[in-house]
Amino acid sequence: MHSSWPRWSALPARAPPILPRTWWGTLHGIAAALPHFRRQGGGHFVTVASIGAHRVVPTSAVYSATKYAAWAITEGLRQELEPGIRVTTISPGVVESELAASITEPGAKEAMRTYRAVSIPADAIAGLARGGNSSRTRYR
């Protein structure tokens, strides 16, 4: 897993930029689309979070917090919106991406090598976001 704070003994003086970017990006996207969905009488929000939103492992606390924020925001939205506007959150495991190359903490880097052996193709997640696969589909 990726973390901007690899160890609790080395906390930075301020929060990494990924935290507010994730929260505000999700909220701004909802704010931009919601009026259109209401005017047309429906729509579908799809957010990609991560299994990290539901399971925290060593070195992933900050990463998991960003994914939990995405999940929590869209879950609240799902509960509050009127019928006709759907909300889906996809929480995949490890997805093939460039993320592994950015990890510098040795323990997390080694863990990512293991995780990548069972990673999900990015196209599979894109297919879920487009609604092209069953919600029961599992990738290993």
Rank of each mutant, 00 (worst) to 15 (best):
E96A: 14
A108E: 06
P6N: 02
M112I: 04
E98R: 11
V118D: 06
A65S: 14
T89A: 10
K109M: 06
T22A: 12
A15N: 03
L99D: 02
L77E: 00
F45E: 03
V46I: 07
W71L: 15
T22G: 07
A117C: 11
V46W: 01
F45W: 03
T47F: 03
A117V: 07
G25D: 00
D123P: 01
K67S: 11
R14I: 06
G29A: 10
V62W: 00
L19P: 02
R78K: 09
I85C: 09
I18A: 05
A101V: 12
A100Y: 00
A101R: 15
A31P: 04
I18F: 01
Y63C: 03
T89L: 02
A61R: 05
I120T: 11
I125E: 11
H28I: 00
G52N: 13
S97Q: 09
G25T: 03
K109N: 07
I103L: 07
G52W: 03
A15Y: 00
R14Y: 00
T88N: 06
R138V: 15
M112L: 06
H44A: 08
Q40W: 03
I125V: 15
Q40R: 12
G132R: 14
L11I: 15
Q40Y: 02
A126H: 12
R78N: 07
P121E: 11
S4K: 08
P92V: 15
G41K: 04
G43K: 10
T137M: 15
P6M: 04
E96S: 12
G93P: 09
A13I: 13
T114Q: 07
H54E: 15
A129G: 14
S97N: 09
E96L: 13
A65K: 03
A61I: 11
E75L: 07
T104Q: 14
Y63N: 02
V48L: 13
D123C: 10
R39Y: 00
E75M: 02
R55G: 01
T26A: 12
T47M: 09
E82W: 11
P58L: 07
D123G: 13
T74E: 08
I51L: 15
R113F: 05
Y115V: 05
S91H: 07
Q40C: 08
A100F: 00
P20M: 03
L81Y: 08
H54F: 14
E105P: 05
S4V: 09
A100I: 00
P17S: 01
G132S: 13
A126C: 14
T88Y: 05
H2W: 10
